[in-house]
Design a protein around this nucleic acid. Structure first.
Lengths: 327, 327
DNA sequence: CTGAAAGCGCTTACAG
DNA sequence: CTGAAAGCGCTTACAG
């Protein structure tokens, strides 16, 4: 910077001003500085800048989930990509952090609360997540992906409309003429799990039948298979099933096959997510599409709203049903 | 830090020394400083530190691929997680960057070369990737995930043993008693694509038959389906197929079904990756498992070797065949 | 073992 | 519009 100033024949203060928008700088001075920057190949030192501005231009993307539940959100890669790109257009960068156990959680919690990032994107939290509680107490800008289950009033969030998705799928199965529509719901300690079940109940209640409802322990193929097996035992006459994720649906498919039920003929099956999985099963899944890319971008937009002191609203994004062969 | 020093009754220099390992500090002084740090809730400012040490404790994880090829590496999420965790144990953090088009590539290239990160992890590159060329010229420590196709001698890499995996699967299909073993290979401008095909040829040459070889345009279900359809036209008597990824295998499965071939009875089918997809197809896929977690950790270990000026060797990790129902 | 001092590269009132 | 100066919070020879 010293060099640039010398070559341009101005002071370091002036160089700094053109760097920060060029306000209060004459055109001649600005041009001279820009030429000098090109000539020297100058690049700012972010650390020096952060030291004085107290802005880091970094955002933490915290994946808060137990290690064994790797595939809970099959769209995590897409989400991280979308957020990273949106961040890049704003000159910020995404720092990926995995809070898989208590040690990691503590390390991350103190890291982000010590001013190393401008804000936090909190992904895949469960009810009772200690990280949520700690962040609720902090002054740091935080946006949650999915509707928060705890401290809901303290957080802005961005979510797909899980409940409406649950309604759409349930209605769709009913409109197919099916009479016994069951559900393999996800774990109820996640907002997606609870809301998709709620959507199902919205449509069916007060006729909902407990024997048609079953919960998977987590979003995995094996868990889906086990849950579907239970459902079949409870309600042998089930003729349609809404599985609350594509992975659960893949498991349900295996259980149905094992029981000799044809899909969709004997049992119509619907999934949720519209992930790659939905296209790889046989038959391919009718499912509810979540706009994951858009969720990633909105997450960043809302976070910057918070950082800049505006008061951004939480956002719920629409979902839509994609019809394939399973129902 | 000023406060800590005052409370502990020492100078800032001494506080800094205990922060950096406590060398050349008396026990009494160290204890006093630690107490003072606890009392004040002191946390270092990384930016001030980076400003003087020239170390950023940040590593760029660059995903270099065109936007439309989202699922090329179905294990990207796992890879990023593993790397982030390994980085965390070393006090560093992972910055995720997506180089999807020229603009993004330029921005990222100049960012990482301007000293904002200590090193780079380069993921999912293709032959001719301009980013690889630029990074080859730079002095920055770089480790490539997968064997580099260009500037190979200039980079350290960490890869799964794709070629050996190709051999194992081909041999396995042959040992099943199949006579016409075909391949749906991946795109040849990726190291995985080229090496898996090479493994197939290692086993079959000089008897390899061109009509049994087909290439998918990218790692997608639709591409796998199209390639399998071509293969069936070229070699109607094919009785086994090695699809170079699980996604390609899922597509091949659809094509085989459409052609009325039963799997594994008429055609035995093997995949590659052992991703979730392999468990969701019907039948589930016999496939080659890649130790993605371990690749992520090794990537970081090798990078730190480079950063610390040691001369770490590239590493190739073993793969192994997982048998399921498709072959 | 310890302190005083210089310096890392920037930004931002302040005075003009 | 511009420059001189202070200051952001640390580390690290240097001298003792």
């Amino acid at each position: 910077m010293e060099d640039v100033a010398r070559i341009a024949g101005v002071s370091r203060g002036t160089v700094s001003r053109v760097l920060n928008g060029g306000h209060d700088v004459s055109e001649a001075a600005e041009a001279a500085v820009r030429d000098a920057m090109l000539a020297t190949g100058y690049v700012v030192n972010h650390y020096a800048r952060s030291l004085v501005t107290r802005r880091t231009n970094a955002v933490a993307f915290i994946l808060s989930e137990p290690h064994e539940r790797l595939f809970e959100d099959p769209n995590f890669a897409t989400l991280a990509r979308a957020a990273a790109q949106e961040l890049a257009t704003r000159g910020a960068t995404l720092m990926l952090m995995v809070a898989g156990d208590r040690d990691e959680r503590n390390r991350i919690s103190s890291y982000v609360r010590s001013g190393h990032v401008d804000g936090v994107l909190l992904v895949s939290t469960h009810r009772g997540d200690p990280l949520v509680a700690e962040l609720a107490g902090a002054t740091l800008p935080v946006v949650v992906c999915g509707k928060p289950l705890d401290h809901a009033s303290e957080f802005r969030f961005v979510a797909a409309d899980d409940r409406e998705g649950g309604r759409q799928m349930t209605r769709f199965l009913l409109d197919l003429g099916r009479r016994k529509v069951g559900i393999v719901s996800g774990p109820l300690d996640t907002s997606g799990g609870a809301d998709r079940l709620q959507g199902y109940l919205d449509v069916l209640a007060p006729d909902a039948d407990d024997s048609l409802i079953t919960h998977a322990t987590h979003y995995g193929i094996a868990a889906g298979e086990a849950a579907m097996t239970r459902l079949l035992a409870q309600a042998p006459d089930v003729d349609a099933v809404f599985a609350a994720s594509d992975l659960l649906a893949a498991g349900a498919l295996a259980a149905l096959r094992a029981a000799g039920r044809r899909v969709p003929r004997d049992v119509a099956l619907g999934g949720f997510d519209n992930s790659v999985i939905a296209q790889s099963t046989d038959p391919p899944l009718t499912t509810v599409h979540q706009p994951v890319d858009q969720v990633g971008r909105e997450l960043v937009r809302v976070l910057f709203g918070l950082i800049d002191g505006r008061e951004p609203a939480s956002v719920t994004l629409p979902v839509d049903l994609v019809r394939r062969a399973s129902a």
